[in-house]
Design a protein around this nucleic acid. Structure first.
Lengths: 289, 289
DNA sequence: GTTTATCATCACAAAATGTAATCAATTTTT
DNA sequence: AAAAATTGATTACATTTTGTGATGATAAAC
């Protein structure tokens, strides 16, 4: 009986044309891929690949095996999906998002997890491109991004938006450009980007002035407002991150005359049939954003 | 990924409704079958069988898995057939037949093997029902029988016949019924059957007389003519067995007035796609009989 | 010509698989 | 009813398979 694990390695290899990349895709070592192919060839007593230096081409047998085998593998997967019991609120769901909206989502999803003790949430914070990668590599079930993904494997649609807000200490001076530059900027991973969006739209001076003087930086999204609350500077943050700050009385949030917001895209892997628990969480996320 | 070995155990179990018989069919132990099913259920986190004492029925999931899974297994098998290199004269071919025609065939097939050094013949002698069983249980690729098989898995068609011959010592007396009974019978596994066929058709006395007095027995087909050649008795043998005797000058073969012969049926497993080497040997056998 | 990237091979640790022995239960025989 | 025989589940263990890391060889890139 053909070993479907070996077959999968072979089919992936044919698609990628590259042992090392196949290994990465399948979360195994290059040595493993090499051996899988060799064992397939041994078992079938048939050469599948014609090795040409570091390239290879397919023999007729290899061609057949790839075409037919791919279909069978899919059928096996689908069968597993069809038969496996698939409860809507049990099992692991892996969510990845940038920090800002994560602060809100994570709390809300923990509520959900408390309602469904069988549900296990694996929530990871990372950059937009990290989200995209995680989805494409099957490392995450659901992703949230503030831009559309570029990889073709990743499906996305807009599910909401988050306003960018100017945040200053409570006892802040006026909101003139001069006072802001004097107060100084508290930076964070998306700080420059957010600042240019919001400030550029509201302060004509922004475009021509010096870069903002940075008075601090944190990549821990929940910590960014701490220096602001102590009067050390101002920042520009998505609303969800502001909402999550524990001492709102120490900061002041300003509605500027030209509101700016970033879209939020919900992403998951195209084609791969999603288990019920992932669909459930997607539904919940949509109601939250 | 669903393990196709486990799946095969499960599908066979569903068909046979019986763990122990499934184990026999698949050449494994009952314990193994039991574990395969359990592991499938564990992996899919789904009950497949509802155990009812020693019986069982299928859950919905089990039903689906059986139906879809069976198809996938077949597809896998066929793919393997299609891809596996399948030389016409290399590999093991297992032939099973009763002794008589085996004596001729085995020699001829050894000739074939000498012409094709890659070919390996596994020739086993057994009874008609043994042949049938061996085919049905996939223990043999080709079988030869002198009656039609009864098992539905076994396909057969007539490829020839072998004459039954009366064999006496060279210096035998007349062929009257009286002299034969006085000479005595050398028996072998099919002896009684063959004798009744041939003698019953040629000696009206046969039906009413005492059972033949037996002067010897051998289940080694090539040895049966030894006691005959020494004058110890006569026997009735298929022609192929007589032809194989090394000292033909010591025996006398008699053409009786009513010739009797047994049909020869060539058998192989229905449906299972035969590898090229088996087809080759089948062709050769047909030319030999 | 040197460096880097890529694939094959090998030795070994970890994991899986299959079996025999045993147990528990059900069915059949006496 | 009791005894015997079947049948499937479970367990312990030996064997086999599998995947990895290390190493080496060869092709591509610089």
């Amino acid at each position: 009986m053909i070993n479907p694990i070996w077959l999968r390695s072979f089919c992936t290899l044919v698609e990628l044309g590259h042992f090392t990349r196949t290994a990465e895709r399948l979360h195994m070592t290059q040595s493993g891929v090499s051996q899988h192919v060799r064992k397939l060839e041994e078992q079938l007593d048939t050469q599948l690949l014609v090795r040409e230096g570091k390239q290879f081409s397919l023999t007729d047998a290899g061609q057949t095996l790839y075409q037919q085998g791919g279909g069978i593998l899919q059928a096996l997967q689908q069968l597993q999906q069809a038969v496996r019991q698939d409860p809507p609120f049990a099992g692991v769901v892996r969510v990845t998002s940038p920090g800002s909206m994560g602060l809100k989502l994570y709390a809300d999803l923990l509520d959900l997890q408390q309602q469904h003790p069988q549900l296990v949430l694996d929530y990871r914070f990372t950059s937009n491109s990290g989200v995209e990668q995680a989805i494409a590599q099957l490392d995450s079930d659901i992703g949230l991004m503030t831009r559309q993904p570029t990889l073709s494997e990743v499906h996305s649609h807009k599910v909401g938006q988050e306003s960018l807000l100017l945040v200053t200490p409570v006892q802040s001076p006026s909101l003139t450009w001069a006072s802001l530059t004097q107060l100084g900027f508290i930076d964070h991973p998306d700080g420059a980007h957010h600042a240019s969006l919001l400030l550029g739209a509201n302060y004509p001076e922004f475009e021509y002035s010096e870069p903002l003087s940075t008075r601090g930086f944190s990549n821990q999204i929940s910590q960014i407002l701490e220096p602001v609350s102590r009067g050390l500077g101002f920042t520009v943050l998505p609303a969800y991150a502001v909402d999550a700050f524990t001492r709102p009385e120490l900061i002041k949030v300003h509605a500027l005359s030209v509101p700016v917001s970033e879209p939020i895209y919900l992403c998951y892997r195209r084609k791969s049939a999603l288990p019920q628990r992932v669909l459930s969480v997607i539904d919940v996320i949509k109601t939250l954003l």
